[in-house]
C-alpha cells in the first residue's frame, strides 16, 4: 500500500516497521562542484564499507572463536561468582548465576548471526522471485503479488514473531521464520522495481525478439542486474533482524535459555540495573555495534551497487 519507495525501492534498517520508505542515503548529497569531492571520494576506500565490514568481521570472529573457545563455559553457573563486577578474570563481569558475560556475548554472536542469516535468506527466497515475477508481469499478476505483499507488510517482523511465539511457542526457529516472512515484502519491492527498470532496456527487447523464454530472460538478464540491490537489502534486513531478535528475546519469546542471546541477557539484566548496570551495557553495546555494522555496510554497498550513486 505504501507508495513511497526510493527509485530502487529500497527500505532501510532505520525504516519503521520494516516498511519500504525513502532511504535517506539514497538521496545523499552530490558535490555541487563539477568534478569535485564526490568524484574524489569514489576513488578512496568507502569509509562506511570499511567500518561496517570491520564491525561485522569482529562479530563474526567472536562467533567463530566461540565455537571452539570461550574464556568460560557461557552456560555454566558458578554460585560463588555471582554478580562480579568487571575485572581481569571476568572483563565484562558475571551475571546472577555466576556466568561469564564476555563468554555469553561471544556465544550470543552465534545466535545473532544465525537469526540474521536465516531470516534474510528466507525473506530473499520468498520476496525476490515474487518481486521479479511482479516486475516481469506488471499487470494483473504483478498487482496481485504486490497486494499480497501489502498484506504481509501489515505484519511487521516483530509482531509476526510474537504471534508465532503464541502459536508455536517461542524459540529461535520460529523467530527466524517469522522475521524472514516479515522481511519478504521489502525484498519483493526491491526486486520488482529493479526488474521494472531492467525490463525497459533495449537488450530485453532483443532477447524477446530472439524468442528467449521468460525464465531465461529472468536468469540471464534480470537476476545479474538486480543482484547488487538485493545484496544491499540483505544487509539492511540483517540489521532489522538483529534488532527484532533482541527485542523478541527481551520479551522472552526469542531464543530460549540456556542458549546465550544478547536480548535475553538484557532481559536478565533488568532486575539488576541498580547494582550491576554493566550487565545491560555490554550486551546492549554488542547489539548496537552489530546493527550499526550492518547499516553502514548496507550504505556502503549501496554506494557501490546503485548505478545512480555510481554516476554521481
Amino acid at each position: 500500500m505504501s507508495i513511497l519507495t526510493t527509485p530502487s525501492g529500497q527500505a532501510s534498517a532505520s525504516a519503521p516497521a520494516d516498511a519500504a520508505v525513502p532511504e535517506p542515503d539514497a538521496m545523499r548529497e552530490r558535490s555541487t562542484k563539477p568534478g569535485g569531492s564526490a568524484r574524489r571520494r569514489r576513488r578512496g576506500p568507502n569509509a562506511q564499507l570499511v567500518v561496517g565490514g570491520g564491525l561485522i568481521a569482529l562479530i563474526a570472529l567472536a562467533a567463530l572463536v566461540s565455537l571452539v573457545w570461550t574464556p568460560y563455559d557461557p552456560t555454566h553457573a558458578v554460585a560463588a561468582d555471582r554478580l562480579l563486577s568487571p575485572s581481569l578474570a571476568h572483563p565484562m563481569g558475571t551475571d546472577r548465576y555466576g556466568r561469564d558475560v564476555l563468554s555469553g556475548i561471544m556465544a550470543g554472536a552465534q545466535i545473532t548471526l544465525l537469526v540474521g542469516t536465516v531470516s534474510v535468506l528466507i525473506g530473499a527466497a520468498i520476496g525476490v522471485p515474487f518481486g521479479i515475477l511482479a516486475g516481469m508481469r506488471p499487470k494483473r499478476l504483478g498487482v496481485l503479488i504486490m497486494g499480497g505483499s501489502d498484506v504481509v507488510m501489515a505484519f511487521p517482523g516483530l509482531l509476526l514473531a510474537i504471534v508465532f511465539g503464541a502459536v508455536f511457542g517461542g524459540g529461535t526457529l520460529s523467530a527466524m521464520i517469522a522475521l524472514g516472512i516479515g522481511s519478504a515484502p521489502a525484498f519483493a519491492r526491491v526486486a520488482r522495481s529493479g526488474t521494472l527498470q531492467v525490463m525497459s532496456m533495449d537488450y530485453i527487447f532483443a532477447a524477446r525478439a530472439a524468442n528467449r523464454s521468460g525464465l531465461a530472460i529472468a536468469l540471464r538478464h534480470v537476476v545479474p542486474n538486480i543482484g547488487g540491490m538485493v545484496i544491499v537489502q540483505c544487509s539492511v534486513n540483517f540489521a532489522i533482524a538483529v534488532l527484532a531478535e533482541a527485542g523478541l528475546s527481551f520479551l522472552g519469546l526469542g531464543t530460549l535459555p540456556p542458549t546465550p542471546s544478547w536480548g535475553r541477557m538484557l532481559l536478565d539484566a533488568q532486575q539488576f540495573l541498580a547494582t550491576s548496570a554493566y550487565l545491560a551495557i555490554f550486551p546492549g553495546v554488542a547489539i548496537a555495534l552489530a546493527v550499526l555494522g550492518f547499516n553502514l555496510l548496507g550504505d556502503g554497498l549501496r554506494d557501490r551497487f546503485d548505478p545512480k550513486m555510481r554516476n554521481r
Partner: peptide
C-alpha cells in the same frame, strides 16, 4: 542512534 534499540535506551 538508529542502531540502539529503544528498550536499551529505556534501561539506560
Amino acid at each position: 542512534g538508529v542502531a540502539v534499540p529503544s528498550f536499551l535506551v529505556g534501561m539506560l
